[in-house]
């Protein structure tokens, strides 16, 4: 048996992508500081902080953490859509491969993994109710 067999798959992958994504959000926000635009650090700073808090609760994924993750991912996706529209409007090449990977595929993957990570509440079936006492 290899070393990682006991991990739950969606949560592990979700955690990996979120850590990388949170770091990239933080780094890209810091780049604005280099240009002397500290106000631009506000949104990536909040998003990074939100993701860090969510990553710490990734094993349970409470409702607030799901909301934070969804909000960040949808913001990234909407921004990518605006960028795509701008490129089309300005008669430019469409999104580059790396942009597609980090701004489209990654958030879609996170949203998908988030859905799979949430364990549905156990609803007793009729069979369980009938035979549950055995």
């Amino acid at each position: 048996m290899s070393e990682g067999m006991c991990m739950t798959s969606p949560q592990l992958l979700l955690r990996i992508i979120l850590i990388v994504q949170a770091t990239l959000l933080g780094v890209s926000g810091l780049e604005s500081l280099v240009l002397g635009n500290p106000l631009a650090l506000l949104i990536p700073g909040l998003a990074t902080a939100g993701l860090i808090l969510a990553i710490r609760r990734i094993d349970r994924i409470p409702t607030w953490s799901r909301r934070v993750i969804r909000m960040v991912e949808w913001t990234v996706l909407v921004t990518a859509a605006i960028n795509l529209l701008l490129a089309i409007f300005m008669n430019q090449r469409l999104l580059e491969p790396v942009v597609i990977a980090t701004q489209v595929v990654a958030p879609l993957a996170v949203l998908g993994l988030l859905k799979r990570s949430i364990t549905p509440p156990v609803v007793p079936t009729r069979k369980d109710l009938v035979h549950g006492s055995r």
């Binding site: 990239l24 959000l25 780049e31 280099v34 240009l35 635009n37 631009a40 990234v76 300005m90």
Partner: peptide, 20 residues
């Protein structure tokens, strides 16, 4: 205002859009 250039890993800082 201007918040930088698209980063090597494909992102502007969140909340910014990319002008081609």
């Amino acid at each position: 205002g201007i918040t930088g250039a698209v980063s090597p890993l494909g992102a502007c800082s969140l909340g910014s859009v990319a002008i081609p």
